[in-house]
Amino acid sequence: MNRRAVSFVEIVIALGILIVCMVPVLTMFGSAGRAVLKSQNLGFAIGFAHRISQHLLAMPFESVTEVPLPGQPVADGPDDEFFNPVSNFGTTGANALRITKAQTPDLWAFLRKYEFRYALIVNNVNFAAGDRMKCVGIIITWKEGGKDLLYKLYTYVPDI
């Protein structure tokens, strides 16, 4: 029997097949975006932890103390040896910039959005009698899509 047109049922079935084919593509876009976001924040956390480890080497040994979890926030955080103040293009301390909404809005917004924090776990280690060294666990935490994420880096800080 020759049919002259496409029936409604056929249209609905065709639409259904199209939607079923679209769903994996849509989810792939979403997961690709989440992966890029995750890698962006992970890359940032890696550099963040490395920065702390380098600053620890320049600090007086006795100043290397524990910062317990849940950690110190960086945006709007207090002055510390690692992040605040973050820069100073002037010639006196009065020009120093801190990570606040007023002074470094772009950086502040990024750190606030993902609630980046750092914590330090400090233990004494002893490879030799009479020598002093601290093993510092640097923990960076942040939030992504409602989940708490964490990056850890261990380093030795000698007493020199």
């Binding site: 962006q40 890359g43 550099g47 490395h50 920065r51 380098q54 320049a58 772009d106 950086l107």
Partner: peptide, 9 residues
């Protein structure tokens, strides 16, 4: 909007 903070001793 992407940032990197790092340091070297």
């Amino acid at each position: 909007g992407v940032h990197a903070l790092d340091a070297v001793y």
